[in-house]
Nucleic acid binder design. Sequence first.
DNA 1: CCCAAATCTAACGAATTGTAACAACCGCGA
DNA 2: TCGCGGTTGTTACAATTCGTTAGATTTGGG
Lengths: 233, 233
Amino acid sequence: MTAPLVTILDDEPAIRSMLADALTEAGFRTMSFGRATEFEAALKTATPDVCLVDLSLPDKDGLTLVHRLALEQGATVIIISGRAQVQDRVTGLELGADDYIIKPFDPAEVVARIRARLRRGQSQPQSGNTARFNGWTAHFDSYILENEAGEETPFSHAEGEVLRLFLERPKRLISRAVMQETLGGAAGESFDRAMDVRISRLRTKLREDPKNPRLIKTIYGAGYIFLGDVSWS
Amino acid sequence: MTAPLVTILDDEPAIRSMLADALTEAGFRTMSFGRATEFEAALKTATPDVCLVDLSLPDKDGLTLVHRLALEQGATVIIISGRAQVQDRVTGLELGADDYIIKPFDPAEVVARIRARLRRGQSQPQSGNTARFNGWTAHFDSYILENEAGEETPFSHAEGEVLRLFLERPKRLISRAVMQETLGGAAGESFDRAMDVRISRLRTKLREDPKNPRLIKTIYGAGYIFLGDVSWS
DNA sequence: CCCAAATCTAACGAATTGTAACAACCGCGA
DNA sequence: TCGCGGTTGTTACAATTCGTTAGATTTGGG
């Protein structure tokens, strides 16, 4: 179990380092960014547990970024802002932020609020080895996939890795890089086509319509999203 | 689907009614209590989705109550307190509270924070991912566009970005510059023809008459305007 | 009405992704 | 050891996405 990863996006270096210090001391891993574009680039290869975002960014509108993060990635987003008006806070929260902290802030409170968010998020992780989603049941201990009619299809280890990754992060974008890392790891560095093939095979077992997949969506140039209402048991 | 239940525990009647009014208006069910003992008695017959708790109670220590609620019941707890010290907030959050709001507060922010908690807790379909407009239904989670007849057309990520931008700002001029920034971002500065093409493709999917577009209007020299009665759900 | 600028869109092509087919590999029983 | 069935990466080619190009069309000023 690695330490949770917290990203810091703020244009002021002083604030970045203050936060990074406090978070590191509190036992988190951190990554800092001064510009939205850098941050977005990094998102392709890492999945932070919590994103701290300052609204006043030099190169992009912070609120739009928050909205995208929250909606498309399903990420946990905490806004840090100098704008103290109630209306600012309300719109920030309504756009999908999980919390809104006003500058100047005390790093200890930031840490406490991050912990509060993680407590909720992690209490969910699969308590069992069986997942149900959209009529399907996946048994990870027996490597069997069962459909509504009760018909059983075995799946292999490689397919199971992909399926589990999806089922643990439903409705969130999973970048190709993250997949590589989580799965093959040190395997083939050069050709990631293996990834596509795995997904293709998984889609076949899930009876996906190739022209119009319902469960595993491809986001061109970004990665995949698994749509499905997952419940573990 | 009944409205979420929010309990209010505060010894000041004025605050109770202020919160109750705001929450009712926001569509929640509420129950108010002035003493911890009453509240605990009510817990035996009802399971609130969110508990608002004031720390200064006449008959019991609020923090202990919060701890019990959070730990044993797994309830979502939001502390409302006049104690504004950072240390108070940190200990409150560490004892299991999900949020900490300081008096005096604005009811609108309380509502927004409650909504933020509920959004997470149910891990249910993130609301606000489906938009209806003029006979069309756009499903942003599944990347599908549905017409009145129920026919489905998938749309791509790039098309979705444009469509979402329009649907979030209906009946308002959207300048070309804003689009560039919101979308491609760091893409080519020189060639914005890409933008036109995206819109052209979107128009095709929306079955727009090229001679007389009804939904996506071009404002020569300024930008675009999306006409359509949008409602998100 | 004429023209330059702005916009539309069909067509092309580079990059990305899908998948069938093949081959390497593994475990297992005869 | 051999052969068989199953798994999985690789290859090759098909399909898709999406920016670019270029020529047609539209717009609004003079």
